[in-house]
């Protein structure tokens, strides 16, 4: 018997989430903050997302010196500097393409992209869908704050229809992307969503994504109360945390009892659900660097290299 989306009914022995470990210890192990200060707004969700990523590193048991991250422009763009891992901080939207090069050149690295919703889904959309299609073993983490925060709060492809931003003062006229559906449609093997208001669940989603062999995508609902919230009736960080808490349900396929984290379970009757959390899609398929390694071995065997490498 298996659950929907091919998730096996019998699961391997559960690893401890280790949520009790003090943050200071994790900071010591995984973080490196060059100028000893964070460049996030007070109350920003990025700090919570960052600590979830550190806990996920710990849970997944990665060697931080073998972790490479990539990102571009946005509020999140400083995050890559704050880990002990290596990081490419390049231009807006190219994270998935940097990561493709990193992973293909050194498949032994654990490669993540840290990207905002505007970065990943607007200017970087093409790289995102093609990295998903290739099923290359990278983890794409999208911090969805509903707007372009770094430039002062303009609407992004994720801004909800009707909501107010700097460039949609009369209400957002365009429908929004569902980033997870886009990822599934493009061929991603592992697609999950969580929010910064559910740190334990978020940690597990990111850790599972890192451990997943193949393209993994995690959409992190991360509040921007300063720009989006203020214009849409949620001016405090806690307003938006409550907004996530009150409107989140768990996807049916991700509900082994011990991992529900007190989040209500999705039922088909609910029409007004905003955030369906959990692993939305899980599908094993051939991984690109492994497939390329086979191709390379064949090419090398067929025609001995004329070149000393």
């Amino acid at each position: 018997m298996s659950l929907p989306n091919g998730m096996p009914a019998t699961r391997p022995a559960k690893k401890k989430l280790d949520l009790q470990r003090p943050l200071d210890e994790l900071v010591e192990m995984y973080a490196d903050i060059p100028d000893k200060s964070f460049r996030y707004c007070p109350g920003c969700g990025l700090g919570m997302a960052q600590s979830a990523i550190m806990r996920a590193f710990h849970r997944a048991g990665v060697d931080i010196t073998k972790v490479a991250t990539a990102g571009g422009s946005g509020c999140y763009s400083v995050m890559g500097h704050y880990f002990k891992s290596s990081h490419i901080h390049g231009s807006h939207g190219r994270g998935c393409a940097y990561a493709t090069g990193l992973k293909l050149a050194r498949p032994e690295l654990t490669v993540l992209t840290l990207q905002g919703d505007g970065d990943l889904l607007a200017i970087g959309g093409n790289h995102f869908i093609h990295a998903a299609r290739r099923n290359i073993d990278i983890t794409v983490i999208c911090f969805n704050n509903y707007n372009f925060g770094d430039t002062g709060g303009q609407f992004a492809p994720t801004t909800p229809l009707g909501s107010k931003t700097d460039t949609s003062s009369l209400g957002m006229p365009e429908p929004a992307f569902d980033a997870c559906k886009l990822a599934i449609g493009a061929g991603a093997g592992f697609v999950a969503r969580s929010t910064v208001a559910h740190p334990a669940h978020l940690t597990k989603m990111i850790a599972d994504a890192i451990e997943w062999k193949g393209f993994a995508f995690v959409e992190v609902m991360q509040h921007c109360h300063v720009l989006w919230g203020r214009r849409n009736g949620m001016p405090e960080a806690m307003d938006m945390m409550r907004f996530y808490k009150d409107n989140s349900v768990l996807h049916l396929s991700t509900v082994p009892e011990e991992e529900r984290f007190d989040i209500p379970v999705y039922s088909e009757d609910e029409k007004d659900v905003k955030f369906v959390l959990g692993v939305l899609h899980r599908e094993k398929k051939p991984e690109y660097t492994e497939e390329y390694a086979k191709l390379r071995a064949k090419a090398m065997a067929k025609l001995p290299a004329k070149v000393k490498s």
Partner: peptide, 30 residues
């Protein structure tokens, strides 16, 4: 692949430049 390297066909020229930046960051001439 014959010389133990990697060829990847990217989705556009922005992608190919970005991919070689990533690869070169790992020390592989790109």
């Amino acid at each position: 692949p014959q010389v133990g390297g990697t060829y990847v066909q990217m989705e556009d020229e922005l992608g190919s430049m970005s991919a070689i930046m990533g690869a070169s960051a790992t020390g592989v001439k790109s």
